[in-house]
Protein backbone atom coordinates (compact mmCIF):
# COMPACT_ATOMS: atom_id res chain seq x y z
CA UNK A 1 0.00 0.00 0.00
CA UNK A 2 0.93 3.65 -0.14
CA UNK A 3 1.96 4.66 3.35
CA UNK A 4 1.32 8.16 4.60
CA UNK A 5 1.75 9.93 7.89
CA UNK A 6 -0.47 12.57 9.43
CA UNK A 7 0.48 16.18 8.95
CA UNK A 8 0.73 18.29 12.09
CA UNK A 9 -2.65 19.88 12.86
CA UNK A 10 -0.87 23.23 13.15
CA UNK A 11 0.19 23.01 9.51
CA UNK A 12 -3.38 22.36 8.36
CA UNK A 13 -4.63 25.22 10.52
CA UNK A 14 -2.23 27.52 8.66
CA UNK A 15 -3.59 26.39 5.28
CA UNK A 16 -7.26 26.96 6.03
CA UNK A 17 -7.31 29.73 8.59
CA UNK A 18 -8.64 32.33 6.13
CA UNK A 19 -11.39 30.15 4.70
CA UNK A 20 -15.03 29.96 5.74
CA UNK A 21 -16.08 26.61 4.38
CA UNK A 22 -13.78 23.63 4.20
CA UNK A 23 -14.41 20.03 3.27
CA UNK A 24 -12.18 17.34 4.69
CA UNK A 25 -12.06 14.30 2.43
CA UNK A 26 -10.77 10.94 3.55
CA UNK A 27 -9.90 7.90 1.48
CA UNK A 28 -10.98 4.36 2.21
CA UNK A 29 -7.93 2.69 0.73
CA UNK A 30 -4.26 2.71 1.73
CA UNK A 31 -4.40 5.70 4.06
CA UNK A 32 -7.19 4.01 6.00
CA UNK A 33 -5.04 0.93 6.53
CA UNK A 34 -2.08 3.01 7.66
CA UNK A 35 -4.39 5.08 9.87
CA UNK A 36 -3.46 8.42 8.38
CA UNK A 37 -6.43 9.46 6.26
CA UNK A 38 -9.42 7.20 6.72
CA UNK A 39 -12.84 8.02 8.11
CA UNK A 40 -11.59 7.96 11.69
CA UNK A 41 -8.72 10.33 11.03
CA UNK A 42 -11.04 12.64 9.10
CA UNK A 43 -13.33 12.74 12.14
CA UNK A 44 -10.54 13.51 14.56
CA UNK A 45 -9.01 16.20 12.36
CA UNK A 46 -12.36 17.84 11.61
CA UNK A 47 -13.32 17.85 15.26
CA UNK A 48 -9.98 19.30 16.29
CA UNK A 49 -10.16 22.02 13.63
CA UNK A 50 -13.74 22.98 14.53
CA UNK A 51 -12.78 23.32 18.17
CA UNK A 52 -9.64 25.25 17.36
CA UNK A 53 -11.37 27.85 15.21
CA UNK A 54 -14.35 28.11 17.55
CA UNK A 55 -11.93 28.80 20.35
CA UNK A 56 -10.31 31.48 18.19
CA UNK A 57 -13.71 33.03 17.74
CA UNK A 58 -13.72 32.15 14.07
CA UNK A 59 -16.62 30.38 12.52
CA UNK A 60 -15.43 28.00 9.87
CA UNK A 61 -17.79 25.40 8.53
CA UNK A 62 -15.84 22.18 8.42
CA UNK A 63 -17.55 19.15 6.90
CA UNK A 64 -16.38 15.60 6.49
CA UNK A 65 -16.70 12.95 3.84
CA UNK A 66 -14.72 9.82 3.08
CA UNK A 67 -14.60 8.39 -0.42
CA UNK A 68 -13.93 4.84 -1.50
CA UNK A 69 -10.84 6.02 -3.39
CA UNK A 70 -9.47 9.32 -4.58
CA UNK A 71 -7.38 7.92 -7.41
CA UNK A 72 -10.33 7.00 -9.62
CA UNK A 73 -12.72 9.29 -11.45
CA UNK A 74 -15.85 7.46 -10.43
CA UNK A 75 -15.40 7.99 -6.70
CA UNK A 76 -14.14 11.55 -6.98
CA UNK A 77 -17.27 12.34 -8.98
CA UNK A 78 -19.35 11.59 -5.90
CA UNK A 79 -18.61 15.02 -4.46
CA UNK A 80 -19.14 16.99 -7.66
CA UNK A 81 -22.48 18.33 -6.48
CA UNK A 82 -21.18 19.66 -3.20
CA UNK A 83 -17.69 20.87 -4.10
CA UNK A 84 -18.86 24.37 -4.98
CA UNK A 85 -20.08 24.90 -1.44
CA UNK A 86 -16.51 24.92 -0.17
CA UNK A 87 -13.59 27.28 -0.62
CA UNK A 88 -11.07 24.62 0.09
CA UNK A 89 -10.69 20.88 0.40
CA UNK A 90 -8.27 19.14 2.71
CA UNK A 91 -7.65 15.72 1.21
CA UNK A 92 -6.32 13.05 3.52
CA UNK A 93 -5.57 10.78 0.58
CA UNK A 94 -2.01 10.19 -0.56
CA UNK A 95 -0.41 12.71 -2.91
CA UNK A 96 -2.02 10.85 -5.80
CA UNK A 97 -5.51 11.49 -4.51
CA UNK A 98 -4.78 15.11 -3.59
CA UNK A 99 -3.61 15.80 -7.13
CA UNK A 100 -6.39 13.96 -8.89
CA UNK A 101 -8.87 15.94 -6.84
CA UNK A 102 -7.05 19.18 -7.61
CA UNK A 103 -7.01 18.40 -11.32
CA UNK A 104 -10.67 17.47 -11.39
CA UNK A 105 -12.02 20.38 -9.38
CA UNK A 106 -9.85 23.00 -10.95
CA UNK A 107 -11.42 26.01 -9.27
CA UNK A 108 -11.15 24.58 -5.79
CA UNK A 109 -8.02 24.81 -3.67
CA UNK A 110 -7.04 21.34 -2.48
CA UNK A 111 -4.62 21.02 0.45
CA UNK A 112 -2.78 17.87 1.46
CA UNK A 113 -3.71 16.56 4.89
CA UNK A 114 -1.02 13.90 5.08
CA UNK A 115 2.61 13.45 4.14
CA UNK A 116 2.82 10.66 1.59
CA UNK A 117 5.84 8.56 2.47
CA UNK A 118 6.36 5.36 0.50
CA UNK A 119 5.01 2.04 -0.73
CA UNK A 120 5.27 -0.33 2.13
CA UNK A 121 3.90 -2.93 4.48
CA UNK A 122 2.34 -3.04 7.93
CA UNK A 123 5.07 -4.69 9.97
CA UNK A 124 2.81 -4.52 12.99
CA UNK A 125 0.03 -2.16 13.93
CA UNK A 126 1.57 1.30 14.13
CA UNK A 127 4.74 0.31 12.27
CA UNK A 128 4.95 0.63 8.50
CA UNK A 129 8.08 0.26 6.44
CA UNK A 130 9.17 0.73 2.85
CA UNK A 131 9.38 -2.06 0.32
CA UNK A 132 9.16 -0.54 -3.15
CA UNK A 133 10.12 2.64 -4.96
CA UNK A 134 8.44 1.82 -8.25
CA UNK A 135 11.70 1.85 -10.23
CA UNK A 136 9.85 0.52 -13.26
CA UNK A 137 12.10 -2.44 -13.89
CA UNK A 138 11.84 -5.00 -11.12
CA UNK A 139 15.05 -6.83 -10.25
CA UNK A 140 13.68 -8.89 -7.36
CA UNK A 141 14.25 -12.09 -9.34
CA UNK A 142 17.99 -11.63 -8.97
CA UNK A 143 18.13 -10.51 -5.36
CA UNK A 144 16.29 -13.27 -3.55
CA UNK A 145 13.05 -11.30 -3.61
CA UNK A 146 14.48 -8.55 -1.40
CA UNK A 147 14.79 -5.11 -2.95
CA UNK A 148 18.10 -3.22 -2.72
CA UNK A 149 16.66 -0.22 -4.56
CA UNK A 150 14.12 0.57 -1.87
CA UNK A 151 15.78 -0.98 1.16
CA UNK A 152 19.49 -0.21 0.79
CA UNK A 153 20.20 3.40 1.77
CA UNK A 154 22.63 3.60 -1.15
CA UNK A 155 20.52 1.58 -3.59
CA UNK A 156 23.56 -0.62 -4.22
CA UNK A 157 22.85 -3.28 -6.81
CA UNK A 158 26.06 -5.07 -5.84
CA UNK A 159 26.07 -4.54 -2.12
CA UNK A 160 26.60 -4.51 0.75
CA UNK A 161 28.81 -1.52 1.46
CA UNK A 162 31.25 -1.54 4.33
CA UNK A 163 28.74 0.06 6.66
CA UNK A 164 26.67 -3.05 7.34
CA UNK A 165 27.07 -3.97 10.98
CA UNK A 166 25.39 -6.90 12.74
CA UNK A 167 22.66 -6.87 10.13
CA UNK A 168 21.97 -3.16 10.46
CA UNK A 169 22.53 -0.27 8.07
CA UNK A 170 25.11 2.41 8.81
CA UNK A 171 22.47 5.14 8.70
CA UNK A 172 21.20 3.93 12.09
CA UNK A 173 17.62 4.17 13.25
CA UNK A 174 17.28 0.40 13.39
CA UNK A 175 17.17 0.06 9.61
CA UNK A 176 18.03 -3.50 8.62
CA UNK A 177 20.77 -3.90 6.01
CA UNK A 178 19.00 -5.00 2.83
CA UNK A 179 22.08 -6.85 1.65
CA UNK A 180 22.32 -8.83 4.87
CA UNK A 181 18.74 -9.97 4.25
CA UNK A 182 19.50 -10.72 0.59
CA UNK A 183 22.51 -12.81 1.57
CA UNK A 184 20.57 -14.61 4.31
CA UNK A 185 17.81 -15.34 1.84
CA UNK A 186 20.20 -16.56 -0.89
CA UNK A 187 21.85 -18.76 1.74
CA UNK A 188 18.48 -20.16 2.79
CA UNK A 189 17.73 -20.90 -0.86
CA UNK A 190 21.12 -22.54 -1.32
CA UNK A 191 21.91 -20.00 -4.03
CA UNK A 192 24.69 -17.92 -2.52
CA UNK A 193 26.69 -18.45 -5.71
CA UNK A 194 24.19 -16.09 -7.35
CA UNK A 195 25.68 -13.34 -5.20
CA UNK A 196 28.79 -13.36 -7.37
CA UNK A 197 26.91 -12.48 -10.53
CA UNK A 198 27.52 -8.83 -11.25
CA UNK A 199 24.36 -6.79 -11.48
CA UNK A 200 24.47 -4.68 -14.64
CA UNK A 201 24.09 -0.91 -14.64
CA UNK A 202 20.47 -0.07 -14.04
CA UNK A 203 18.29 1.68 -16.57
CA UNK A 204 17.07 4.51 -14.37
CA UNK A 205 15.07 6.00 -17.22
CA UNK A 206 12.24 3.71 -16.10
CA UNK A 207 12.43 5.37 -12.71
CA UNK A 208 11.83 8.97 -11.60
CA UNK A 209 14.94 10.00 -13.54
CA UNK A 210 13.14 9.39 -16.82
CA UNK A 211 10.44 11.93 -16.05
CA UNK A 212 6.77 11.34 -15.19
CA UNK A 213 5.81 7.82 -16.14
CA UNK A 214 2.77 6.33 -17.73
CA UNK A 215 1.52 2.82 -18.35
CA UNK A 216 -0.69 2.42 -21.39
CA UNK A 217 -2.42 -0.86 -22.11
CA UNK A 218 -4.10 -0.85 -25.47
CA UNK A 219 -5.70 -4.25 -24.83
CA UNK A 220 -7.79 -2.90 -21.97
CA UNK A 221 -8.05 0.68 -23.02
CA UNK A 222 -11.49 2.01 -23.93
Amino acid sequence: MIVADRKPIEEIIEYIKDRDKVLIVGCNECVTVCEAGGKKEVGVLASALRMYFMNQGKEIKIDEVTLERQCDHEYLEEIRNIVDQYQAIVSLACGVGVQFMSEKYFKTQVYPGVNTCFMGVTEERGVWSERCQGCGQCILATTGGICPVSRCAKRLLNGPCGGSSKGMCEIGGEVPCAWQIIIDKLTALGRLDDYEKLAPLKDWSKERAGGPRKVVREDVRQ
Partner: peptide, 14 residues
Amino acid sequence: FADPFEIRVRRLAK
Protein backbone atom coordinates in the same frame (compact mmCIF):
# COMPACT_ATOMS: atom_id res chain seq x y z
CA PHE B 1 36.05 -7.69 8.80
CA ALA B 2 32.68 -6.27 7.82
CA ASP B 3 29.33 -8.00 8.04
CA PRO B 4 27.97 -10.18 6.60
CA PHE B 5 31.04 -12.30 7.15
CA GLU B 6 30.10 -15.15 4.80
CA ILE B 7 30.55 -13.01 1.68
CA ARG B 8 33.83 -11.29 2.57
CA VAL B 9 35.86 -13.31 0.07
CA ARG B 10 33.04 -13.61 -2.45
CA ARG B 11 32.79 -9.82 -2.47
CA LEU B 12 36.47 -9.52 -3.26
CA ALA B 13 36.02 -12.06 -6.05
CA LYS B 14 33.21 -9.94 -7.40
